[in-house]
Simulated assay, not measured.
Amino acid sequence: MRPPVNQSATSLVESAYEQIRRRILDNVWPPGHNALEHEVAADLGMSRTPVREALMRLQNEGLLEVIPRHGVRVLPVSGVDMQEIYQVLTALECMAAELLAARKPGVKELAPLVDATKAMGKALKADDLDAWAVADERFHQDLLDLAGNRHLRATVLNYWDRTHRARMFSLRLRPKPVNSTKEHMQMVERLLAGDAEGAARVTRAHRERARHELVAIFERFKLAQM
């Protein structure tokens, strides 16, 4: 018989994980940031046990490195990392678009994608790039949810964490993202038409354009990593 799960301990680990992960993704802890385990625990107001488990989980996801007796270091993302990760994201999101289009979804089912796209347009009119980024992320998450493949979704989100920091870092260094909103609407149109090939084609062009823009920033500012 398996021992009963300590829900309180599980909740503490999950809380530590989410708080540390959010700091990394939002660049509160930038690439190269170092911290000792007991400092992290004190900062979160927790004991070291749940913090240690959360840090190991984040290490497995590639966001940080646990260095015995020296704490943790937030791992940077290089231009090569971005190239390779975007290639993976492009392939998997194209598959998600194909799966969804093949179901021939209706207007009601695709409403979350339309709402997210409208929010992107509204944010651009207000010149609020942070709100635009939130809406853009919501669109891609909803696409994965609607595709209905749990394993595909989990894989994409694992890589997504590593691109999020670079995207937020470069948000104001890239051209204003007017094309993204148009491409999202084109994607919705192909999905409504049940056009799996067209939906994948638009998704691929959308992701490849974003990849080129991000890699260009690495090259223009001669960044080895971010």
Rank of each mutant, 00 (worst) to 15 (best):
N6K: 11
S8E: 14
Y17C: 09
Q19C: 11
G32P: 05
H33M: 10
H33T: 10
L36M: 09
H38F: 04
A42V: 07
M46C: 06
T49E: 15
T49C: 00
T49R: 15
T49D: 14
V51Y: 03
A54L: 06
L58G: 10
Q59A: 15
E65S: 13
H70R: 15
V72Q: 06
R73C: 08
V74D: 02
P76T: 01
S78L: 07
S78A: 08
V80F: 09
E84M: 05
V88K: 08
T90S: 10
A97K: 01
L99W: 01
E109P: 00
M120D: 04
A126T: 02
D130W: 07
A131K: 10
W132I: 05
A133T: 03
A133M: 12
V134Q: 12
E137A: 14
A147W: 01
R150A: 15
H151M: 09
H151R: 10
N158H: 10
N158T: 11
A166Y: 09
N179W: 04
T181E: 15
K182W: 03
K182Q: 12
M185E: 14
L192W: 00
E197A: 15
E208V: 11
R209V: 01
L214F: 09
V215G: 02
I217V: 10
F218W: 07
Q225G: 01
